[in-house]
Simulated scan of single mutants.
Amino acid sequence: MLLLRKRLLAGLAALLIALSSGSIPAAADVPIGVIVNGLKVAFADAQPYVDINNRTMVPLRIIVQKLGATLQWQSNGRIEIKYGQRSVALRLNSLQAVVNGKRITLDTSAVQVEGRTMVPLRFISEGLGAKVRWDSEAYTVLITDEVFAKSSPNLDAWGRLIRTERLPGNTGEWAYVLEDVSNSAYIMGYRKQINPASPRMPASEAFQNPNFNRENLDQWVKRIRNYYDLVFSVDYRTIDPSTWAESFRPYMNSSSLDSITRVQYAEWVQNNGIRLEGWAEPEPSMTYMQDGKYMMRTMVRFRVLEADADYGTLLDTFQASYEVKLKIGVWYRGYADIVLSTNVSGDPWPHYGVELHDHLFFTPVGSIQEEVGEQL
């Protein structure tokens, strides 16, 4: 009864907050990627989102740091950003700003969301002299300043910087090594082979196939991201078991959709007050073939916000043949090799989807760990 009362009070509080601050929208389900000067930005908590004015909002401090600018908070609530000879000044919840001494009117204002100052990305970046480009296929914003552009950087097809120094010992197994991905992600080992007699095709070999192009790989990335958006966005207050189970269909190998198991899990969510949040960031350049299927290494970050059950809180652990207990309020982060397969013949490349019963904790075991100090 006490737990039910707490839930009702929490729901009422959330409703009152939403009604009183309707100008602050919720974050997009699948986070927007941001690449600054060839380096993908890892947002620790507050994620970029598109606001009601169709403007991409990002955490101010981390973007300023990535561009190498300086940030100052004035006593009157004024925010001032300086980058070389350029400057941008604005205030929270105000449409008035000053760019390089010239007063302008914005079409959306800086706001605070869960203690983080969120600002319109294009306005801040261009005000500091950087170029901004939207990559719709990768759902990513690319920001480059003049100094970086003139350095003739070695970028991959997604605009990310390729590393040529401090390389991992197994560099030859990969198509290339990214500057913003740690060596530990490259050397952590592969998913266990079902058929050891069948040789693994490393990414360096797989990428020699012309079908390993951006068009196909972007489709695979979208399916993984949307698949795990469904996995990590469950909420006992809103989930509808049959609708939720069928929502996976566009992102999976359709012949392997296990609707019964997913309906059972959704009912488990309802009955045990389970609520999650998290996201997946696939690395298309880290794709290899094994056991006749493709594996795309993917960084995941998630946490259990609320649950009455001690086990089965994640679809992954609900389906597994062993018990994994996840702590409530603790962020988990790590890499998993997500299996992609298809039953389509002829031209199968655009049709690969997430494989039935894929498990984060199998791929490989031990990569996904608790983040120290990240708790509710």
Rank of each mutant, 00 (worst) to 15 (best):
G68N: 10
S87A: 11
Q375C: 04
G84H: 11
R303N: 08
V269L: 02
R303K: 15
P25D: 12
G129R: 11
T108Q: 08
G33L: 05
L161K: 10
Y236N: 04
W244K: 00
L217I: 02
A203V: 07
V372A: 10
A28I: 03
Y322R: 14
G292N: 12
V181A: 00
L90F: 10
T243I: 13
F362T: 05
Y332P: 02
I17T: 13
N54M: 08
S259F: 03
D358E: 12
A266Y: 00
F362R: 13
L60F: 02
N213W: 08
R78L: 15
R91I: 02
A42T: 15
L376K: 05
V324C: 03
E205W: 06
L3T: 13
F232E: 12
Y139S: 12
I32C: 01
W158I: 04
R160A: 04
M286D: 08
V304F: 01
G172N: 12
Y332E: 08
A18M: 07
L276M: 13
W158C: 01
Q65N: 15
N343P: 00
Y139K: 10
R301W: 01
Q264M: 12
L3W: 07
V88D: 05
T105S: 14
T70S: 15
V269D: 01
E277V: 12
E80H: 02
P282S: 08
P202V: 13
G101P: 02
I124F: 01
L95Q: 13
L2R: 13
D291G: 09
E173R: 13
T117F: 05
R223E: 07
S256P: 00
V147L: 12
P348H: 03
K102L: 10
L315P: 00
L360I: 14
R200Y: 00
E370P: 02
N76Y: 04
K293Y: 08
Y352M: 05
Q74F: 11
A69S: 08
N93T: 02
D45L: 11
R262S: 07
V269Q: 04
N170Y: 05
M188L: 13
L2T: 12
R5V: 12
E215Q: 14
R55I: 09
T164S: 14
I81L: 12
M118D: 06
Q112F: 01
S136R: 13
Q369E: 10
Q85A: 14
V234P: 00
E114Y: 03
K325P: 01
N211H: 14
A320D: 15
E277S: 13
T117L: 12
E306V: 03
Q290H: 04
I104E: 15
R214C: 02
V132Q: 11
K102I: 14
T56D: 09
P199S: 13
I274Q: 00
G366Y: 01
Q369D: 07
V269H: 00
G22T: 06
G129Q: 11
H359M: 11
R5S: 08
I52V: 05
T144E: 15
K325E: 11
Y251N: 10
S109Y: 06
A110H: 04
R223N: 11
L217A: 01
A28W: 04
S321V: 03
R200F: 00
T171Q: 15
Q219T: 12
M252Q: 14
S345G: 03
R191V: 09
D310T: 06
E215F: 09
L121H: 03
P168I: 08
R55D: 07
R7G: 02
